[in-house]
């Protein structure tokens, strides 16, 4: 990555961001007027291999096929479940996707997933005319049976993951917890110790509050070390006395 690629600028709706290039990918955040391109949201403009990309700073989750999401079962139906994925659209999970076989008529799907359960899922398909379909086929997908889920704003997921997953790795590496960030702004974590879980939640909210401050990854790292240093030492100190 060259130095130029890293430059990001704040853009507002109606701001001129550039001229029509050869292969500008379609994005809801950029519109064309004549041969000029304008931003449509408050976001950060980035140049990524001849492409203009806008990372929105506000907004809701817009499902994209292939996204990893954490859903909350909202309703049990005859052949599947409706799932809340904190998006304007309700998602649907087919029973056969979870069971690996067709659902028998009259089978009670509550036995497998009930209202209030969290699931890790992939968005299988979504277009503007139909609701997003989820799939739980794949490693690590399915019902979440342990750990904790917290909600953050969906537009913060790029920061929570970080460049080349740097932030996620810092979070999980430093606290010793398993961390998975769903694209829809839900974060799943599984910790051994209660203290590290509390600290992790605190750090996630810190990242949500001040997402684009300078050297945030380093700040998070040192904060965790400082706090865990105290917390880890104290039980041992008590055991020794």
């Amino acid at each position: 990555m060259t130095e130029k690629d890293k430059i990001r600028t704040l853009v507002l709706p109606g701001d001129l961001v550039g001229e029509v290039g050869e292969q500008q990918a379609w994005s809801p955040y950029i519109i064309r007027n004549g041969n000029k391109l304008y931003s449509t949201v408050i976001g950060l403009l980035e140049q990524r291999d001849n492409q203009l990309v806008i990372l929105p700073l506000e907004g809701v989750y817009y499902p994209r096929p292939g996204d990893l999401v954490i859903g909350l079962i909202e309703d049990v139906e005859l052949y599947g479940w409706t799932v809340d994925i904190v998006s304007p659209y309700k998602a649907y999970l087919q029973g056969s996707s979870l069971l690996g076989r067709p659902v028998n008529a009259g089978e009670d799907l509550r036995r497998y997933l009930n209202v209030g359960d969290y699931i890790m899922a992939k968005v299988d398909s979504f277009d503007r005319s139909s609701s997003p379909m989820l799939s739980v086929k794949g490693k690590g997908l399915g019902r979440i049976s342990k750990g904790k889920v917290v909600d953050v704003s969906p537009v913060r997921t790029p920061r929570l993951i970080g460049r080349n997953r740097s932030m996620v790795e810092t979070l999980s590496g430093e606290t010793g917890c398993e961390v998975l960030v769903g694209q829809n702004g839900r974060v799943w974590m599984n910790c051994v110790k209660k203290e590290s879980e509390e600290l992790l939640v605190e750090m996630i909210y810190l990242i949500e509050r001040e997402p684009y401050t300078k050297g945030l990854t380093e700040k998070v790292k040192s904060l965790i070390r400082e706090r865990l240093g105290v917390n880890v030492a104290s039980p041992e100190a008590q055991a020794n006395t």
Binding site: P13, Y38, T40, V41, I42, E58, G59
Partner: peptide
């Protein structure tokens, strides 16, 4: 509307 992150042509 802009603060809500809804795409719009201009303010």
């Amino acid at each position: 509307v802009a603060d809500a992150g809804i795409p719009m042509r201009d303010l």
